[in-house]
Simulated scan of single mutants.
Amino acid sequence: MTPDCTTRRPNDAHHRDAGLLPAALDLAAAGVPVLPLRAGKTPFGNCPACRDSVCGDRPNMRAAGPCTCPAPCHGWAAATTDPHVLTSPPWIAAWRQAVAVAYHPGGAGVTVVDLDDAAAMQWAREALPATRTVRTTRGEHWIYAGTMRSANAVRPGVDVKSLMQYARWLGPGTGVMARLSTSVVASLRKEETTPARGQVVSSLPARATWDRTVATGCRHTERYVRTGLERGLAMVRARTESGAGSQAFGVARFLAAQHTPCPGPCGLDAIGEEITAAAVSVGVPEAYARRAVTNGLETAMGRVA
C-alpha cells in the first residue's frame, strides 16, 4: 500500500470533476483496491442477480464462487484497482450517489486496527507498537504492513479490518508504518473475559441443530455425534464467569477433529451454531463467540491461514 498516492490518474476531463472518483483513481493507481460507499458509509447493495448470493459469490470471498458482476456488488470483495472498472457505467452510477471512498486493506497488503473510542486508543498505546495512524470521527485507524483475518469486536471498541473487510479512506495518516508482527497478532486475538450474567450483549433468535439431514457424508452414528456435542455444550455453559469463548474454541476444534476422516458433509456448520448459541447464553458477545467457534472448526480442518 502507498497511502501518499502521488501517482496521478489518467487525464480524463469527464472523470476529473466526478466528485469522489478522482481520489479513488489516485488510490487505485497506487495499488489500493477501492469501492464507493453510499449514505450511511456502507457499500452499495447487491444487484438482483447477486442478491442473497444467488450468483455464487466472487472468487475472492470465503465461499469462492464464479461471480463476475460488473456492478460494485459484494462490498469489499468488489474493490478493484482497474480504472476501466472504476469508470464503467455501473460504477459511475454508484460514484454519483457515493458519500465516501473505501478501500480493501487486505488487497492493499495492510491491516487496519480500528479504534472507536478513547479507551480503545489507550489500550492500543499500551499493547501495540506505534505505527501509521489516521484520525477518524470517533478515534483512530492504526495501519500495519501485512494481513490477517478480519474480526469485529476483538475487544471493546476495537475491530480488525484486513482480508475480508473494507475501511473508509480518510487520508494517508502520519507516522511510519510498522510490520504486523506475531506479537501484534497475539494482542489482537487475546480473549475478553465472559461478561457477568445479565450483561449479555447479543442473542441468537433461533438455534440451528445438528441431525442426519445435514450430515449425509458423516461416518458416525447420530447418537455418537449428539452425545459428544451435548457434553461439549455443557462444558461451554459451565463457564459462567470467564473463559466461555476459549472453551467454545476448544469444543469446536475437538468435535471437528472427529470428522476429519469422514467423506463429508458432516454438518459442522450446524454444530458450530449450537456451540455459538451455548457461548452466547452465558454472556459471550455473539461476534466473539462466532469468531472463536469458526477458528476452532477451521483449525481442526487445517484451514487456518
Results as ranks from 00 to 15, higher is better:
residue 70 P to M: 10
residue 237 R to Y: 10
residue 234 A to M: 03
residue 263 P to R: 14
residue 268 L to K: 07
residue 18 A to M: 02
residue 40 G to H: 03
residue 79 A to S: 04
residue 114 D to F: 09
residue 254 F to Y: 15
residue 183 S to E: 15
residue 76 W to R: 11
residue 288 Y to S: 15
residue 133 T to F: 10
residue 26 D to H: 08
residue 102 A to E: 00
residue 246 S to D: 15
residue 2 T to K: 14
residue 78 A to T: 09
residue 216 T to F: 08
residue 58 R to M: 09
residue 166 Y to V: 08
residue 145 A to S: 08
residue 111 T to E: 04
residue 268 L to P: 08
residue 13 A to Y: 07
residue 120 A to E: 07
residue 242 S to K: 14
residue 278 A to D: 02
residue 169 W to M: 05
residue 18 A to K: 00
residue 273 E to A: 14
residue 103 Y to A: 04
residue 141 H to D: 05
residue 37 L to S: 01
residue 212 R to F: 11
residue 10 P to M: 07
residue 126 E to F: 08
residue 99 V to Q: 01
residue 10 P to N: 06
residue 103 Y to W: 12
residue 104 H to G: 02
residue 252 A to K: 03
residue 96 R to P: 00
residue 191 E to Y: 13
residue 181 S to P: 07
residue 150 S to I: 08
residue 63 A to N: 15
residue 221 T to P: 04
residue 196 A to F: 12
residue 281 S to A: 15
residue 74 H to P: 06
residue 238 A to Y: 00
residue 215 A to H: 13
residue 264 G to E: 09
residue 213 T to V: 13
residue 116 D to F: 04
residue 263 P to S: 15
residue 47 C to G: 10
residue 76 W to H: 10
residue 206 A to N: 11
residue 183 S to T: 14
residue 181 S to R: 06
residue 125 R to N: 15
residue 19 G to R: 03
residue 99 V to K: 00
residue 284 V to I: 06
residue 122 Q to A: 15
residue 161 K to C: 08
residue 121 M to K: 13
residue 119 A to P: 14
residue 282 V to I: 11
residue 278 A to F: 05
residue 282 V to F: 06
residue 146 G to M: 00
residue 169 W to A: 03
residue 78 A to K: 08
residue 242 S to I: 13
residue 167 A to E: 02
residue 33 P to V: 01
residue 260 T to E: 13
residue 158 V to T: 06
residue 193 T to P: 11
residue 133 T to W: 10
residue 170 L to M: 12
residue 186 A to K: 08
residue 162 S to N: 03
residue 290 R to E: 07
residue 89 P to L: 11
residue 19 G to P: 00
residue 16 R to I: 07
residue 32 V to C: 07
residue 296 G to C: 07
residue 107 G to H: 01
residue 186 A to S: 08
residue 192 E to L: 09
residue 5 C to G: 12
residue 229 L to T: 06
residue 248 A to F: 00
residue 148 M to H: 09
residue 58 R to Q: 09
residue 156 P to E: 00
residue 20 L to I: 01
residue 47 C to H: 10
residue 86 L to R: 01
residue 77 A to R: 04
residue 298 E to Q: 14
residue 138 R to S: 15
residue 270 A to F: 14
residue 190 K to E: 13
residue 132 R to C: 05
residue 66 P to I: 12
residue 162 S to P: 03
residue 299 T to M: 11
residue 213 T to S: 15
residue 100 A to W: 04
residue 56 G to T: 09
residue 116 D to G: 03
residue 76 W to T: 06
